[in-house]
Simulated scan of single mutants.
Amino acid sequence: MFSGYSFADLTSIFVMQGFAGLSLFAVFVLMSLGLAIIFGQMGVINMAHGEFMILGAYVTWLTGRFFSSHLPALFGGYFFVAIVLAFICSALLGALVEKVLIRHLYKRPLDTLLATWGLSLILQQCYRSLFGPREVGVDLPDWMMGSYHFADNIDIPINGVFVLALTLVITCITGWIIYRSAWGIKVRAVVLNRPMASAVGINTSRVDNRTFALGCGIAGIAGSAFTMIGSTGPTAGQQYIVDTFLVVVFGGAQSLLGTLASAFSISQSQSTLEFFLSGSMAKVITLLIVVGILLLRPQGLFASRIRRQE
């Protein structure tokens, strides 16, 4: 696999693919953070999570078109507005879905899987009807174009650096919300013992609704980041849902640290293997490695010490 490459060539390849893997890592982290909150904290298998990501991507695309047409002087900063709008739109849709659909299916994981799978098909058709079947791409501001010349044969794209910075900020905010805020204490109390949390005055239904909305909102931000590395289409979210579940399960369903470590290892392995092999073979090898590790450690890389009590 490495024959025909000099040591300098391999070094450049690993560095470039490593950074390309960091861009994929950013999308994996943002997607997995939202899914880890929903699946790990609530036990809901949300198969429509990819469609919430694509909603954020379409909101970013629409925001870019609006600024380009009506506020061209402010186009350079439209992406920051798009991120906020993507979070709000995805979170509001998530809150509505939880209230109308998910709330009636708690403790029925198979039913939530089927219901959210049906929801994903409905959302895909809605996107296809509203935006058309073809993929669309966003226009990036001038300051996000180009790359940093790191070394010979090694260029680091500026938009990739921005996506990594965005991921770091969102991860820190999410960690603070879950582990430091008063609302995060309520979330963890509901996870630990729902009847006792309700008995001490915590509105568990409101906690569930806001938790689901937060997870979907983070998926919307992942959609904004996704527009920088790929085009947006009605079914684009389904390309990432399997990898996202793999990241969450491999890292440990209730561990944010495990989610980060899992997303990094999976994205780096896929990115590097894709250079030397086909994309499908890279996914197969990565999956086999993850399955092998899970056979030895089924609780994931970082198992949570929280034990659910009914």
Rank of each mutant, 00 (worst) to 15 (best):
T171Y: 15
C216K: 00
M53V: 06
F14W: 15
A222W: 09
N46T: 03
P157T: 04
F302K: 04
T116G: 04
L277I: 07
I45M: 07
I102V: 14
R305S: 15
S205R: 04
G223C: 07
I202Y: 00
M281T: 11
L119D: 00
I13M: 02
I83T: 13
N209D: 01
L92Q: 13
T227R: 08
S224M: 15
S90F: 10
Q270M: 11
A95N: 05
A165R: 09
D111G: 04
A219V: 14
L113A: 14
V190L: 05
I177W: 09
P298G: 07
L296V: 12
G279L: 10
G300L: 03
V161S: 12
A115P: 08
C126I: 14
R308V: 15
V84L: 15
W143T: 06
S90A: 15
L101W: 05
L74F: 12
I178F: 15
T211Q: 01
G43E: 02
L85Q: 04
G56H: 04
H149P: 09
L301F: 11
A82E: 03
S32Q: 12
S90L: 04
I185Q: 11
V29T: 08
S68R: 13
S271E: 03
L101V: 09
T167K: 04
V248R: 05
N159A: 14
N159S: 15
G132C: 12
L294Y: 09
A8Q: 14
A263Q: 04
Y58D: 03
G146Y: 09
T167V: 07
Q41V: 00
A36R: 08
L214W: 00
